[in-house]
Write a protein that binds this DNA or RNA. Structure first.
Length: 426
RNA sequence: GGAGAGAUGGCAGAGUGGUCGAAUGCGGCAGACUCGAAAUCUGUUGUACCGCUUGCGGUACCGGGGGUUCGAAUCCCUCUCUCUCCGCCA
C-alpha cells in the first residue's frame, strides 16, 4: 500500500508518478471525494461517540450517588439510534477507501526508466562470454528428452499441459541445483534457511500483493481460504507480518527453496514449449527485511547474490532495470537477471530482484522499533536466487555436447557424485 | 474425530457491567549515585486515526466478527488460534 499521508498531501503528484506505470492511473479526483466525505462523517461519528461516553459515565456516577438516572438513560437511547446509522455508513466508506487503496500499485523509484513495455527496460551490464557451438544447437526440450530426463507427455497425462516430469540424472541435477544455491546463500551470503507452508491465507497473499487484482494468477484450495504459493516470497515475507522487530535484529535475511504454483492465466500460447513457463516449478528465493535507509544498497547487494549463482555456474547473463510499465505491482525498483539461452538465441528472465520499500510492510504492518523507540515500517526486498527450473533449462542448453550428452557444470559435480557428464541412455 | 481449558500492552500477568487504555513485574528510555559499569533509587514508556497545531483535545483498539445494554476487557453467539487428555496417523 502506498503512504496515505503522501497521497493526501500531494494527490496530483502521486497520480503523475503512478501514471508512468501505464495501467489505469490513480483516480485522484475520486480519492479527494472519498476523503472529504470520510472527514465529515468521521467527525460527526466521533462527536456522537464522545457524548455517548460522557452520558454513560454520568449515569455511572449518578448511580453511585443514588440519584435518578432515567432522563440520562433516555438521552443515551436517542444517541444510540443516531449512532448506529452513521457508524455503519462510516464503516462502509472506510472499507471502500481501503479497497481502493489496496489496489493502487507502488510508486516507482526515481531511478527507474519510464517506459511502457519490456522494450524500454534498461540494460545495466553483461557477464560471461557466449559459447560458440560447432554443431546445430538444440533447445532444452530436445536435450532433456534425448537424455531421457525430461518427460512432458507424462507430466501432461498426470496433471495436464504445462507440467513436467524428470527422471534419473536430470532429476538429480535439478535437485543438485537447489542444494547448491541454498549452500551458497547460507554459507557465503549470510542467509538463514527457512522451510515454510506451500499454502497461504488470503490475508497473507494480500500482504505481498493485491489479492483482489491478482487472484486469477493463483491456484486456490476449494472451499478454503488458502492459496498455493506462486513464490516463497508469499510465506516468507509474512514472517514479519504484525511484528515489531528489534532494530538490532535487522537486517533479517532468509533463503527458502520451495515449489511455486502459478495458474499462468492470460499467458495462453506463450512459451508453451518446454519448461520455461510451467504451472509448477522450484525456486530458491532470497529475501531481506531491512532498515528503510538501507534498502537501495541492499537491492544492489541482493542482486549480486543472485548473480553469484550464475557466475558460479558460468552461465552468461545480463542485468536489466525494469521500466515503469514492466514492473510488478508491489515493486518500487526491479532488476531482472536474464540468462543466455542458445537454444532460443535469446536472453530469458531467470531472476527478478525487487525493492518494495514500505509497500508490503504497510500492507502487513511489519515494523521495527526505531531509533526514537517508535515503531516504523521496515523495507522488504527479495529476489530469485534462482528459479531452479529455468536454471536447469540454461544448463541443458549451454552445456550440451555434439553427441547429445551434457557436461555437468564444475560447481555441481560435488552434488553429483563427481560425475562430469550425463550421457544419452544406450 | 471426541472432551476440556485458554487468548489482555514489547514480554509476563491481574482485572467478571460504570472515572479501565487497563494494576503489578520485566524490558526500553531519561535522570541520580559511580572514574566507568553493575546493583539501587526516581521519573517515564502502547498503536492507529481525526481536529486545532512544536502542545492540547477527541475517537477507536483487551484474538477476529456479530449481539445484549444508556454503558462491555468483563454477559451472549460465532469463527480462528494455542494448550491438556483420548482416538487416529507419517
Amino acid at each position: 500500500m502506498i503512504d496515505i499521508q503522501l497521497l493526501r498531501k500531494d494527490p496530483e503528484g502521486v497520480a503523475r508518478r503512478l501514471a508512468t506505470r501505464g495501467e489505469g492511473a490513480l483516480d485522484a479526483v475520486l480519492f479527494q471525494r472519498y476523503e472529504t466525505a470520510r472527514k465529515e462523517l468521521q467527525t460527526a461519528v466521533e462527536q456522537a461517540q464522545a457524548s455517548r461516553n460522557r452520558i454513560a459515565k454520568d449515569i455511572g456516577m449518578a448511580k453511585g450517588k443514588g440519584q435518578d438516572v432515567a432522563p440520562l438513560v433516555e438521552q443515551g437511547e436517542k444517541l444510540k439510534n443516531l449512532l448506529e446509522r452513521s457508524d455503519q455508513k462510516l464503516a462502509e466508506l472506510q472499507q471502500e477507501i481501503q479497497d481502493f487503496l489496496r489496489k493502487v500499485p507502488n510508486i516507482p523509484h526515481e531511478s527507474v526508466p519510464v517506459g511502457a513495455s519490456s522494450e524500454e527496460n534498461r540494460e545495466e551490464r553483461r557477464w560471461g562470454t557466449l559459447r560458440k557451438f560447432d554443431f546445430p544447437v538444440k533447445d532444452h526440450v530436445e536435450v532433456g528428452e534425448g537424455l531421457g530426463g525430461l518427460d512432458f507427455a507424462t507430466g501432461a497425462k498426470i496433471a495436464g499441459a504445462r507440467f513436467v516430469t524428470m527422471r534419473g540424472p536430470v532429476a538429480r541435477l535439478h535437485r543438485a541445483l537447489a542444494q547448491f544455491m541454498l549452500d551458497v546463500h547460507t554459507r557465503e551470503h549470510g542467509y538463514t534457511e527457512v522451510y515454510v507452508p506451500y499454502m497461504v491465507s488470503g490475508a497473507c497473499a494480500d500482504g505481498v500483493s493485491s489479492l483482489a487484482k491478482f487472484k486469477g494468477d493463483l491456484f486456490k484450495i476449494e472451499d478454503r481460504d488458502l492459496y498455493l504459493i506462486p513464490t516463497a516470497e508469499y510465506p516468507v515475507t509474512n514472517f514479519v507480518r504484525d511484528e515489531i522487530v528489534e532494530l538490532s535484529n535487522l537486517p533479517l535475511k532468509f533463503v527458502c527453496h520451495s515449489p511455486c504454483f502459478r495458474s499462468e492465466a492470460g499467458s495462453a500460447g506463450k512459451d508453451t514449449r518446454g519448461m520455461i513457463r510451467n504451472h509448477q516449478f522450484d525456486k530458491v528465493e532470497i529475501l531481506q527485511v531491512v532498515h528503510p535507509s538501507k534498502s537501495y544498497e541492499t537491492l544492489e547487494e541482493l542482486t549480486g547474490h543472485a548473480e553469484a549463482i550464475l557466475q558460479n555456474l558460468e552461465l552468461p547473463y545480463r542485468v536489466m532495470t525494469l521500466c515503469t510499465g514492466d514492473m510488478g505491482f508491489s515493486s518500487a525498483k526491479t532488476y531482472d537477471l536474464e540468462v543466455w539461452l542458445p537454444g532460443q538465441d535469446a536472453y530469458r528472465e531467470i531472476s527478478s530482484c525487487s525493492n518494495f520499500e514500505a509497500f508490503q510492510a504497510r500492507r502487513m504492518q511489519a515494523r521495527y522499533r526505531g531509533e526514537k523507540g517508535k515503531p516504523e515500517l521496515v523495507h522488504t526486498l527479495n529476489g530469485s536466487g534462482l528459479a531452479v527450473g529455468r536454471t536447469l533449462v540454461a544448463i541443458l542448453e549451454n552445456y550440451q555436447n555434439a553427441d547429445g550428452s551434457l557436461t555437468v557444470p564444475n560447481a555441481l559435480r560435488g552434488y553429483m557424485d563427481g560425475i562430469e557428464r550425463i550421457d544419452r541412455p544406450t
